[in-house]
Design a protein around this nucleic acid. Structure first.
Lengths: 140, 140
DNA sequence: ATGGTTTATTAAAACCATTCTAAACTATTG
DNA sequence: CAATAGTTTAGAATGGTTTTAATAAACCAT
């Protein structure tokens, strides 16, 4: 039964992350991780949940998204002032940002190589390297 | 006279950008460009102006910063949700972002090379490529 | 299962950076 | 100098996000 397997997967993700598998967290996990790589905003995901009849408040969506970031289920991407995007792809990768539409598009890690990168300043270490390629013009 | 030369430079920058050299714009330009490369927030710069006795409203600081971005005197950097940084270095370069302090530090363009970069999707063109190296831990 | 404790959810209010508004002002042009 | 086009401003509004304080759900040891 695919539906049962998928449900278990979402539940497992939440459980393994050390978060209580509440109805809301499970529903949001299912929405986030059922399909492939996604880039959502809080309002975005909240609307989707309501559309599916999942009763969840916007505050809980924010709480959940931040918890998922904290435990490594999501990654937060900042490209637009005043709006956070959450990315279900937590592996090493980069982004195209379509300035015309506000859309994010993944760039697989292997499509960007660094010939040269500076070292972290003394006393610090590199958490991660984010590349954002900002695009103008509409996709065809 | 150094002070006179600096004043002229700020005025020239504003004039050449096609903006009227108003008292506020000149004062802000002087604050921004007198010292070397800077990363400021709007509130940040507003406070600095008030400290120097320059009478200017926060709304004007925002207007001016955005106008300066539009005419290429400044560049907007987004690393923190809910807060924009403005960078007086408009040339090609990248950034260290100190997560512990919220500080930005320039990385000269020549210290990052790309061995490989993807092409822009059909119908779009690359506006710019931003690299942010996120750092953990405090500088020594 | 049950009761007690901890943790999560919620509506509503608060927050805070930023933008808008509409009126007063200033630089520019004729 | 007057007309006009652009600028500044205080204060209100906006909009995404966070907090609050009360309610509800999950957990844990019996």
């Amino acid at each position: 039964m695919e539906r049962h397997d998928l449900a278990e997967t979402s539940q497992d993700r939440v459980r393994k992350a050390g978060l209580r598998p509440t109805r809301q967290r499970l529903a949001l996990a299912r929405l986030l991780f059922a399909k492939g790589s996604r880039h959502v905003t809080a309002e975005n995901l909240h609307g989707e949940a309501l559309d599916e009849g999942v009763r969840v408040s916007l505050a809980t969506v924010y709480n959940t998204l931040h918890q998922f970031v904290r435990v490594g289920l999501l990654r937060e991407v900042m490209v637009n002032p005043g709006r956070s995007y959450f990315d279900t792809n937590t592996g090493e990768h980069h982004h195209f940002f379509h300035e015309a539409t506000g859309e994010l598009e993944d760039i697989a890690a292997e499509n960007i190589d660094f010939g040269k990168l500076p070292e972290a300043p003394a006393g610090t270490h590199i958490d991660r390297v984010d590349v954002v390629i900002r695009l103008r013009g509409h996709r065809q």
